[in-house]
Amino acid sequence: MELDLAKEQLPSTKSKVNDRTPDHINQQIERETEASVNYYKRQGEQEILARIKELDHEWDTERLLEVNMASIAFISSLLAVRANRKWAFLAGASSAVLIQQALQGWTPPIAIFRSMGVRTVAEINREKKALQNLLNKPE
């Protein structure tokens, strides 16, 4: 019973970032994605394929958070060993941010990334799927 209760309290990993992002930001990202797809409707196959390749390399919110927090943890750990042990608190804080993101789907860095237009994997994949559909449409 306790396990079931814990599952209900944790956000879905599929939508946790979108659920915690203000609607106006989600809508802006959606409008930009739609505008991109509409632009590529008027482009040739090679341009669409090039855009899909770009999307394969686009960094999503989770990757950006992981790299940033791991970098902070690594650098602050080095500073803790070399300069002052107080730097270890920063390493701990960056680890706490990652735990918070995994459990709640929200952290201050994610809010900043979203306001900058950084998309989730699902949002990137929606654009890719729409572009792939353009390639598969009969003329």
Results as ranks from 00 to 15, higher is better:
residue 2 E to D: 10
residue 2 E to F: 07
residue 2 E to T: 08
residue 3 L to N: 06
residue 3 L to K: 04
residue 4 D to Y: 11
residue 4 D to Q: 11
residue 4 D to S: 15
residue 5 L to A: 09
residue 5 L to F: 10
residue 6 A to C: 12
residue 6 A to P: 05
residue 7 K to L: 07
residue 8 E to P: 03
residue 9 Q to R: 04
residue 9 Q to A: 05
residue 9 Q to P: 00
residue 13 T to S: 05
residue 13 T to A: 05
residue 13 T to N: 11
residue 15 S to G: 04
residue 15 S to F: 08
residue 16 K to C: 08
residue 17 V to D: 00
residue 18 N to C: 01
residue 18 N to H: 03
residue 18 N to P: 00
residue 18 N to Q: 06
residue 19 D to N: 10
residue 20 R to K: 12
residue 21 T to E: 04
residue 21 T to V: 12
residue 22 P to I: 14
residue 23 D to I: 12
residue 24 H to Q: 13
residue 25 I to R: 00
residue 26 N to A: 01
residue 26 N to E: 01
residue 30 E to C: 01
residue 30 E to K: 07
residue 31 R to P: 01
residue 31 R to M: 00
residue 33 T to F: 08
residue 33 T to D: 08
residue 33 T to C: 07
residue 36 S to T: 12
residue 37 V to Y: 13
residue 37 V to I: 15
residue 38 N to V: 08
residue 39 Y to F: 15
residue 39 Y to I: 01
residue 41 K to P: 09
residue 45 E to F: 01
residue 45 E to S: 10
residue 45 E to Y: 02
residue 45 E to V: 08
residue 46 Q to T: 05
residue 48 I to Q: 01
residue 49 L to F: 02
residue 51 R to V: 02
residue 51 R to Y: 07
residue 52 I to E: 00
residue 54 E to G: 02
residue 54 E to R: 04
residue 54 E to Q: 10
residue 55 L to D: 01
residue 56 D to S: 04
residue 56 D to K: 11
residue 57 H to F: 04
residue 57 H to W: 04
residue 59 W to Q: 14
residue 60 D to V: 06
residue 61 T to S: 14
residue 61 T to L: 06
residue 62 E to W: 06
residue 63 R to D: 10
residue 63 R to W: 06
residue 64 L to G: 05
residue 65 L to K: 08
residue 66 E to W: 05
residue 67 V to Q: 11
residue 67 V to R: 13
residue 68 N to A: 15
residue 70 A to I: 06
residue 70 A to H: 07
residue 71 S to R: 05
residue 72 I to F: 12
residue 72 I to W: 02
residue 74 F to M: 15
residue 74 F to K: 14
residue 75 I to K: 03
residue 76 S to N: 05
residue 82 R to G: 07
residue 85 R to A: 01
residue 86 K to D: 02
residue 86 K to Q: 07
residue 86 K to P: 00
residue 87 W to G: 00
residue 88 A to M: 13
residue 88 A to E: 14
residue 89 F to V: 02
residue 91 A to D: 03
residue 91 A to T: 11
residue 91 A to R: 04
residue 91 A to C: 11
residue 92 G to R: 08
residue 94 S to T: 03
residue 95 S to Q: 05
residue 96 A to C: 10
residue 97 V to T: 06
residue 97 V to Y: 02
residue 98 L to E: 03
residue 99 I to K: 14
residue 101 Q to P: 13
residue 102 A to N: 15
residue 102 A to S: 15
residue 103 L to V: 12
residue 103 L to A: 15
residue 104 Q to I: 06
residue 104 Q to T: 06
residue 105 G to C: 13
residue 105 G to F: 02
residue 106 W to E: 01
residue 106 W to Y: 08
residue 106 W to T: 03
residue 107 T to G: 05
residue 107 T to C: 10
residue 107 T to P: 02
residue 109 P to L: 03
residue 112 I to K: 11
residue 112 I to G: 11
residue 113 F to S: 04
residue 114 R to C: 02
residue 114 R to Y: 01
residue 114 R to K: 02
residue 117 G to A: 09
residue 118 V to A: 09
residue 118 V to K: 07
residue 121 V to K: 15
residue 123 E to N: 01
residue 124 I to D: 00
residue 125 N to H: 15
residue 125 N to P: 14
residue 126 R to C: 13
residue 129 K to T: 13
residue 130 A to T: 05
residue 130 A to S: 06
residue 130 A to H: 10
residue 131 L to G: 09
residue 132 Q to K: 11
residue 133 N to V: 09
residue 133 N to Y: 12
residue 134 L to Y: 14
residue 134 L to H: 15
residue 136 N to W: 07
residue 136 N to L: 12
residue 137 K to D: 11
residue 138 P to N: 10
residue 139 E to Q: 14
